[in-house]
Design a protein around this nucleic acid. Structure first.
Length: 431
RNA sequence: GUGGCCGUAGCUCAAUCGGUAGAGCUCUGGAUUGUGGCUCCAGCGGUUGUGGGUUCGAGCCCCAUCGGUCACCCCA
């Protein structure tokens, strides 16, 4: 009777050592570009009070309605636990932290980024979609200048460029603000009202709950209706229109190629004005999404505070890197592999003393364990990718030498190895 | 939540009309006793995802279930 063999949960996965170069590549590139643009790193808890997401994303959003990992905490003194949620997105938590720590007293805007932060959504997994995924994100809080909108999009574009990705489409739209959006929503409703009984089931409920999402419908029979539907950009108030025009102007200065997509709306309720999404040319899954959220801080109980941000899916970017055949820098290989030839304890001790010295000097070194045969140790030295095998045997030990054998060199057998005085080994490897 | 395809060794896969499970890679050891890569040999490793059913007999057929994968929905 054997114990149950456990597996990772559905939609959750291990990121194994072989995958790590991709992760380091994306993380280092993203962090470097974010710092270049003046963003500073922040980390917020994975767990928040449910209200943080409920109030901001919107009760009728898909994320809140179907996808949140929500549970009751252990009971406190009052006998019941509060409702907690594993964060499904990054913005709400960062804005909560901004308010909680009084960052509105700092020079505005406060520019923050987070890196490889896990997010949780209970969905059916598929390519580039997991129940736990990781995001790189930036938030610029406290400033409504369209220069910030352009900067943020330019930052993203630079990250993709530096990763070597090609064929990234930048889609842009403006969905207005609390002044003009109601007018647009009314126009959209008026347009859809007579068509409603020909619409799909989902659209009927969108009409009631979240009319903007009518434009998101993928049903073939509704596409003609969408094509003729009014566009939010045609209903912007003067302030929003000017904001949007300046975002586009500044993006040109940043030399970011973009396309306007009047049908681009986003799944979370907190967005205002600028919304954007970057997609791969190969398919239309979003690599990142974001937008302005000028009303979000108030929803979290803070003062009116403008803000804009994005979240980028690391898994999706890595998927795209692989599709485009881009390989990340490989990790450093060992410089030396210490081989001990013989069973005498003194030999092994001398080998450990040598490898300790190498490592203390910052030289990446490996050895084999379990007192394998010399041949087996040499095989492992070769497999390890080490540049040199440092061979210690009774003879070397007696003479105070180490045989340094090059594992990479071509050419004559005699030229491949050389006896180096024990005291010189470190200097020899550092050259 | 809905649908398609798929589950055989750690990995990639094979097994004729149902006939009682095999290969490559990896790993470990060896090929005259202190030297890797190439080659050769050997070994380790599977109650064929799980549970039922049909059958003399099931990896193969049927049902259920779990999981993987892809797509829809939605999104990063």
């Amino acid at each position: 009777m054997s114990a149950q063999q456990y597996r990772a949960l559905q939609g959750f996965r291990d990121i194994l050592p072989e995958e790590q170069p991709y992760w380091r590549f994306v993380e280092q590139t993203a962090a470097a570009v974010a710092e270049l643009y003046g963003y500073r790193r922040i980390e917020t808890p994975i767990l928040e009070e449910t209200g943080v997401f409920l109030k901001t994303s919107g009760e009728t959003s898909d994320v809140v309605e179907h996808q949140m990992y929500t549970f009751e905490d252990r009971p406190g003194k009052e006998g019941h636990g509060q409702s907690l949620t594993l964060r499904p997105e990054g913005t709400a938590g960062v804005v909560r932290a901004y308010l909680e720590h009084g960052m509105f007293k700092l020079p505005q805007p406060v520019k923050l980024y987070y890196l490889s932060e896990p997010m949780f959504r209970h969905e059916r997994p598929q390519a580039g979609r997991y129940r736990q995924h990781h995001q790189f994100g930036c938030e610029a809080i406290g400033e409504s200048d369209p220069a910030i909108d352009a900067e943020l999009i330019a930052l993203l574009y630079q990250v993709y460029s530096q990763l070597g990705l090609r064929g990234i489409r930048v889609q842009l739209n403006s969905i207005g603000d609390s002044n003009c959006r109601p007018r647009y929503v009314e126009a959209l409703r008026a347009y859809y009202h007579p068509l409603l009984d020909q619409c799909c089931y989902n659209c009927q409920s969108r009409f009631q709950k979240n009319p903007l999402r009518l434009l998101d419908c993928k049903e073939p029979e509704d596409q003609a209706k969408i094509a003729a539907a009014p566009h939010s950009v045609d209903y912007l108030c003067d302030e929003c229109r000017e904001h949007f025009e300046r975002v586009q102007r500044f993006l040109q200065l940043y030399e970011v190629p973009f396309e306007l997509n009047p049908l681009l709306v986003r799944g979370l309720d907190y967005y205002t004005r600028t919304v954007f999404e970057f997609t791969s040319e190969m398919d239309n899954t979003a690599l990142n999404g974001g937008g302005r959220y000028d009303g979000l801080a108030e929803l979290l109980g803070g003062p009116p505070t403008p803000g804009i941000g994005f979240g980028m899916g690391i898994e999706r970017v890595i998927l795209e890197l692989k599709r485009q055949g881009i390989t990340p820098p490989l990790p450093e290989r060992p410089r030396a592999f210490v081989v001990y030839m013989g069973k005498e304890p003194a030999l092994k001790e001398a080998a450990i003393r040598l490898i300790a010295e190498l490592r203390h000097a910052g030289i990446k070194a490996e050895m084999s364990y379990g007192d394998r045969s010399p041949k087996a140790q040499m095989k492992q030295a070769n497999t390890s990718g080490a540049v040199y095998a440092l061979i210690m045997g009774e003879e070397e030990l007696a003479k105070g030498l180490v045989t340094v054998r090059s594992l990479r060199a071509e050419g004559a057998e005699e030229a491949r190895q050389i006896a180096v005085p024990r005291s010189e080994v470190l200097r020899y490897l550092q050259v």
